[in-house]
Design a protein around this nucleic acid. Structure first.
Length: 419
RNA sequence: GUGGGUGUAGUUCAAUGGCAGAGCACCGGAUUGUGGUUCCGGGCGUUGUGGGUUCGACUCCCAUCACCCACCCCA
């Protein structure tokens, strides 16, 4: 085989594509009942959009972006995440002038140059929502509830919702300083990564998995103790709303989001049965992002989820229902005259919305009925020389084995018979 | 980017360094126009790729690629 699919990508074949479609439409339905409308942005953007929004020092920008230059030497990148493009579009199209609050959702492929692993790909599919224009804590709870509803509709239980607040920029500054004072005396005991991160991103030390660092993290000061009054109040209200909306959650002060633009609420949906890549969705508030990208300051909150991990979860929990399409009718024609007579009938039935299968390469009764059975067709429509002569057609129910002969002109009755 | 495992027919897997096989799937047939069960027949594959050792390599060695798992990171 000469050509092979690029590393870390995958084809979605018919044996699975119906399931993907099911997931997508379920998400559409949930988004709809919360009043979110779809936005579609390009798959590539100016590199700078992601560099500015995600932060120069983030891993995404440092090593995971698919960058390329076009013929005029402009630098673009395949989108590694969905929020920045949505914000770019919102600002560029002046959506703030049309309504105070804008509720958007998106869905599509994202790209990151990572080493592939269980639940991790280089081209992967994300869905997400963004609520732009309000800092009200109800909305923090609303987007979390939306994702929770989505999972419930899929039948997914045993998912843990973890929430945290990283505060505003001021709180973060105080907290970072406190972390530095706490960790600096223990520098020698820490892993090289953390030693380097203590200056740039002290909060990242908290979720380091190296045992020594993890042990140190136990007694580290908590993010929650460094929230100023408004941020503290905001977090309390989010928790209240979640309680009222009956979304179960646990507070995990060690949640750290990978991207720079998050403020206040941060949350993650975790499935422990997934292996190393156990986060099926994550998000938070990003009140600081709009300023960074160039508009005025606008508060917003959102999240993104991964379809691959959702699919893994559903498969693990044995929640798959449904399947590929099968014919309503398999057309069986015996001989050239019968074929000529059955083709118009097929067209009529298809016009009525029925899935009619016909395979001219199979000529015998046996091979055609065998194929009908193999495809789990509900009915067979049989037309041989006798039927051509009498202008009739035989409709056989392949489950009950009952068959009825109709005049071939009574197409309405035939269609009705097969409903 | 780093480590470990794996790579043989469409697929799941066999083959003490000595002729590359089986199940499933697929196609055809078993007295003429009625399916699912059963029976019979139908494959020849650059053993991921490229080198090396050997009289001889699917088997041993090296490299490379891909997949899986983990680190890392996150969806």
């Amino acid at each position: 085989m000469k050509y092979k699919i690029p590393r870390g990508t995958f084809d979605i074949l018919p044996d699975k594509s119906w399931l993907w479609q099911q997931l997508e439409s379920t998400f559409f339905e949930v988004a709809k009942v919360y009043g979110y409308e779809r936005i579609v942005t390009p798959i590539f953007e100016m590199s700078e959009l992601f560099e500015r929004s995600s932060g120069e020092s983030s891993d995404i920008v440092q090593k995971e972006m698919y960058r390329f230059t076009d013929r005029k030497d402009r630098s673009f990148a395949l989108r590694p995440e969905g929020t920045a493009p949505v914000v770019r579009s919102y600002v560029e199209n002046h959506l703030d002038m049309q309504a105070k609050i804008t509720k958007l959702y998106y869905m599509g492929p994202m790209f990151r140059y990572d080493r592939p692993q269980a639940g991790r790909y280089r081209q992967f599919y994300q869905y997400g929502v963004e609520l732009i224009g309000s800092n009200h804590p109800y909305y923090d709870a609303e987007v979390i509830a939306l994702q929770w509803d989505f999972l419930s509709r899929l039948g997914l239980q045993d998912i843990r919702v973890e929430i945290n607040s990283v505060g505003c920029a001021d709180c973060a500054k105080d907290y970072d300083a406190a972390l530095r004072t706490y960790y600096t005396p223990h520098l020698d005991a820490m892993c090289p990564d953390c030693q380097a991160r203590i200056e740039t991103k002290p909060r990242r030390l908290l979720d380091c998995k190296v045992p020594a660092c993890k042990a140190l993290g136990k007694d580290a000061p908590s993010q929650l103790d460094f929230l100023d009054e408004p941020c503290h109040e905001h977090f309390d209200q989010v928790k209240n709303y979640l309680d009222v909306m009956k979304v179960p959650f646990v507070v995990n002060p060690k949640i750290v989001r990978g991207l720079d633009y998050y403020t206040n609420t941060a949350f993650e949906f975790i499935n422990d049965q997934l292996g190393a890549q156990n986060s099926i969705a994550g998000g938070g508030r990003y009140n600081g992002l709009f300023e960074q990208i160039g508009g005025k300051s606008i508060p917003a909150i959102g999240f993104a989820g991964g379809f691959e991990r959702l699919l893994l979860s559903i498969e693990k929990a044995d929640l798959i229902s449904g399947g590929r399409i099968s014919p309503d009718v398999y057309a069986v024609a015996l001989g050239d005259d019968a074929q000529a007579a059955i083709l118009p009938l097929i067209a009529t039935l298809r016009g009525a919305g029925l899935y009619v299968e016909y395979e001219p390469e199979k000529t015998t009764m046996k091979s055609q009925l065998k194929a009908a059975d193999g495809k789990s067709s509900r009915f067979a429509m049989i037309l041989g020389e006798d039927e051509v002569a009498t202008k009739t057609v035989v409709i056989k129910n392949l489950l009950t084995k009952e068959q009825v002969t109709f005049p071939s002109s009574d197409t309405d009755i035939i269609v009705e018979h097969m409903q």
